[in-house]
Nucleic acid binder design. Sequence first.
DNA 1: TCAATCCGGGG
DNA 2: GTGTACGGATTGA
Length: 854
Amino acid sequence: MSAAPANPPDPASSMVPPSMATQDEWLWGWDPTPGIVSVWADRDGRALIWRRAPGGGSVTCQRDHFRPWLLLPSLDDLAQLGPRLAAADTPEASAPGAVAYRELSGPGHLRYLVSAARGRLIEDAILAGATARLGHPIARLSELGDDAVLQLPPEEQYLVTTGRTSFRDLAFDDLHRLQFDLETTGLDPNHAAIFMVAVRDNRGLERVLDVAESKLEGPAAEADVIRRLVALVRAADPDVIENHNLHGFDLPFLARRAEILRVPLALGRAGPAGLGRRPSSRGYGPWRGEAGEANPGENGPGTNGSGANGPGTNGSGGDRRGPGRFTIVGRELIDTLDAVRRYDFSARDLPGHGLKAVARHFGLAPEGREYVAGAQVYSTWLADPARVRHYALDDVTEAAGLARLLGGAAFALARMAPRRYERLADAGPATGVLDPLIVRAYLRAGAALPARPASTGIPHSGAALYLFAAGVARRIVKADVASLYPSLMRQYAIGPAADRIGALLALVDRLVEQRLAAKARARAAAPGSPERHTDEALSAAMKILVNSAYGYLGAPGLTRFADVHAANEVTRRGREVLGAICRGLAARGATLLEGDTDGVYFSVPDTWTEADERRVVAEVAALLPPLVRLEFEGRYAAMLSHEPKNYALLTYDGQTHLRGVAFRSSRAEPFGEVFLRRAIGALLAGDVPGVRAAYVETVTALRLHALPSDQVAARVRLTKTPAEYEATRSTRREAAYEAMLAVGRTRWERGEHVRIYRAAGGRPLPLLEADGAGADDAGLGASADSSPSDPREYDAAYYIQLLRASFAARLARAFTPDDFAALFDDPRQPSLFAPPLESIHPVLTPITDAPTAD
DNA sequence: TCAATCCGGGG
DNA sequence: GTGTACGGATTGA
């Protein structure tokens, strides 16, 4: 089949509101082809489509052709084509070397849809025309600037013109998903080697490859492991490859080792060996180091032109712009770290983003989970290979569980947006998902696209966020304003002024409506069933999209239809609604604690029943505009409100939930974490003496050196090489490196984790790891008993000061300053004026300048 | 107390 | 396809 560019209806009709059927096409595409699991296309209009039979049956590959296309503001640069430039509906337009054009409707800037049998025909013509017009050579379309051309990657051109999307009629588990995890002797692939790979998939595969299995030694054994990994992946033939930090560690490491050892990485379903690259903004870009450690030469993984690119890949020499992701033809590469970040961006309840911590948080850790500290993996393997095999398999098992738990949203997005699944998994929702949907809608409607608005400098006012009171309150109710901003956009039809066909509002409408339906279906399905997973994932995806519609408005320079005035109007209405909610609740006797666009926390009188709580929420909800839904979400026994979006909750069945960055500290010293948990538990239970006891006992234990050193050690990462630190040492001393130098260690590896503590006078020293001193991952409780050789020469005064200033401080809002001082007074020198413990009660302090910008 | 810098993940 | 994060902790002045 040959897909034609999107077919415009009569331009005059595009001003009428789009029909429901049209809106659904904008959201879902229109071609029903089921089972697409991967698409690969080139600029000359060749496409390969891998499709899986429904229910997870076999995969077939089909060839397809499409007419590459792009959008231009004028045809001037194509004029020199003469008769080879032809209107799309004329016979001349279908001649082999012809460039066809069609003028789109409306006032939009990008108004010419230009297509040809091969994309290069268009590109070469434009470059020649622009070179002649500008009088200097133009080698790439990107040199012409943002508004001079809109050209999508080939796969997206294909998906937009065909109206196809991935995964129609497939469930998440129908995809063949494979996880692999490298175990290496270190973090830098220029010096360290792969000695083991754990592999599993969702079809029952579970295998560990290691260098000991062959009779080979050294590099030959490692190369053999890589070859066996490649063979195993090809034989399994998965649609998706997943792991935690896949793009940040496993792939760049594997690519570099394969390059050094000259092993071809023929992992794809077609095309040349070697990993491809795609540029990517998110995830690994802004981070210093990242795979830069994998290629410490200069920049990121996209750098090292000599890098993992197979000889056939193109463009690597030029992309010195650091960040990038790897690609494999025919398979989607999914990094669970992206899903974790996307999740925690709104949830803010993860203790860290590492695999082990997240898996434990979600209860995904397998029974008998084996833990080995990163730095000890190789030495442990030498002594006890079975233990490391177990550990590595546990890693891939957790990665698979995480992918399934948090990865559903990206899967569902790929059923809507004309983009590869792997791109949707790491994209920001506004530019990464909404923009492609809107571009597809415009082409489907035959409407010209506006130029991208420049940043106007008009500040947009930001989301409303209120902290009304800080401290401790009881009888807490959380009322949720479901998707406040998108509801307001719908209620008052606030959309981008330039959105002539109303695509953004139509999408928001469809998303909100269909999300409610998906939620209802999920509730009706059996827990744990594939149907439920599908609808929960769909609901999560739609929530991501709906909630990014407002951010889309407020990002000029980034999104094509940004409109700061519209964004500010949404915010203004939001403040109105939030104000109405707060007044309504206060008028009915509630005490407000915190409110933002997600919802409101408030405290109610002791005499209220749950029915009273629900009734009040319903009464206030009735005061709001019809499309704004205020719902009762939950109730809690007590709350410590610390800062906006930072609080602790006690449920009625006695569980404590900590939320917000102030209560997350993966790097913190274990004794402080233990103290904080205990103190907050006592505080919320109303047990002030218990808070004091937690403090006194911790101080005493420090003073008597009853705590082992690993309880006071902080885990830090050495990101500078010895030479780099030497260069900055005179201007800026850093404890981690000083600790190394203090014991005469002048060599370490970039990325190495060490634990350090403060000895007398606050002098940093490394913690000498007792051999086999287990896991170094946060929250694993470190070791129960310390090695007998632990000298415990830590600086108690330093840690007592830290306990008060850093940990106890997070309880400061719960007491008056005097009470706080008394509660966390030095037990050896109690103040004469300290109030008796029994007289101390937690307080709730109103915040006077409540409105703040988020 | 304030400004500047570094951190996040993977072995 | 390009570039953007961000909020907390630590360090030195």
